[in-house]
């Protein structure tokens, strides 16, 4: 319990630091947020009014205090361009990103764990000789490149999967949950999730294989084998359980990091998630929105880092909190 509290305090410290860093980053931005409004009718007074309405004419320390205060209240400000509360915009996009990330990770880890375990057995075989480089290649390929090629084949050329978006145009649902579980949504999810999974599966695969090999060489396994237990039983009873530790930790860390890394996949598949919000906000110099999206992504990352730590400590009490990656 004490450990959990300590780790929580640590996460809060990191969040504060990230939030402050974000503040500094965005205030140092060259250019002027009012540039979005340039038109024949845009005047100096309007520019000043705009700056005032967003509190950008106040001294920086004052802005900082106000900023931290609103963050604590969960108020991420109002988007420059959309004029809507940033939090609402982010919450709209969040379910799509969560669905994409979780689905892709589950597929990647399910496949990676099974394939990794299998490859540990198939040591020195031809299969291994092909599978390991293949796993490395999928990790070395740019995601958007793979995604575009898959899109070209499976969507544009053969017409199997939809080309963009998360739902068919104008589809109506009774609730957000109904939307996320609809066949239509899942069908749209296939290609982006597969592309992301393809990229993510290399890590659990290699990790699983390495741990399995390590465990299989351990004395107690050799002993068990001598006792005449079947290979499969040994694996299930001992090896897999030991391999769970690093894989589970990697899963939690992966959830945190691919949350923000989805930016590219979301752009390729026009997926309406957080990454897209961030990119278009940055491109449009919509400070409050970009800042909010960045902080939300960072918060998820910090939280998942914490979860990974606790998970590690929980699964393996020998290890103290703090050592990871």
């Amino acid at each position: 319990m004490k450990r959990v509290l300590g780790r929580l305090g640590h996460a809060i410290f990191v969040l504060w630091a990230v939030a402050s860093l974000t503040f500094v980053m965005f205030r140092l931005m060259p250019g002027d947020p009012t540039l979005n409004f340039l038109s024949e009718s845009f005047s100096e007074e309007m520019r000043a009014a705009l700056l005032t309405s967003f509190g950008l004419d106040r001294p920086l320390p004052e802005q900082y205090v106000l900023y931290l205060g609103s963050l604590l209240r969960g108020d991420l400000g109002v988007s420059f361009l959309q004029k809507k509360p940033v939090l609402d915009i982010l919450l709209d996009a969040l379910p799509n990103t969560v669905a994409l990330t979780v689905t892709a990770l589950v597929i990647a880890y399910a496949f990676g764990i099974i394939a990794g375990a299998f490859l540990a057995f198939a040591r020195g075989s031809v299969t291994e000789g092909i599978a390991i480089p293949a796993a490395l290649i999928t990790r070395a390929a740019p995601e958007f490149w793979l995604g575009m090629i898959l899109l070209a084949w499976l969507s544009f050329a053969w017409g199997i999967f939809p080309s963009s978006g998360a739902n068919e145009a104008g589809s109506e649902f009774t609730s957000e949950w109904a939307r996320l579980t609809s066949a239509d949504f899942l069908w749209h999810l296939v290609l982006p999730a597969l592309t992301l999974a393809l990229y993510l599966q290399g890590l659990p695969l290699l990790l699983m294989r390495a741990t399995m090999l390590e465990v299989l060489n351990d004395e107690f396994i050799v002993m068990a084998r001598m006792k005449g237990l079947s290979r499969w039983a040994i694996v299930m009873r001992h090896a897999a359980r030991n391999a769970l530790l690093p894989v589970a930790t990697a899963f939690a860390l992966g959830l945190g990091s691919s949350f923000g890394g989805n930016v590219v996949i979301e752009t390729v598949f026009s997926w309406p998630g957080l990454g897209r919000v961030l990119v278009s906000a940055v491109q449009g110099a919509d400070y409050p929105l970009a800042q909010g999206a960045f902080i939300l992504i960072a918060a998820v990352l910090v939280t998942m880092n914490m979860v990974a730590d606790l998970l590690y400590a929980w699964l393996d009490p020998r290890v103290s909190v703090g050592a990871r990656r």
Binding site: V14, L15, A17, V18, L21, M25, F26, S257, F259, G260, G261, V263, V264, G275, L278, V279, V282, A290, A293, F294, I297, A298, L301, V302, N305, R325
Partner: peptide, 13 residues
């Protein structure tokens, strides 16, 4: 702190 910053979003920003 650095590990709490999302990698690609940070580079983009």
């Amino acid at each position: 702190i650095v590990l709490g910053l999302p990698f690609l979003p940070f580079v983009l920003v």
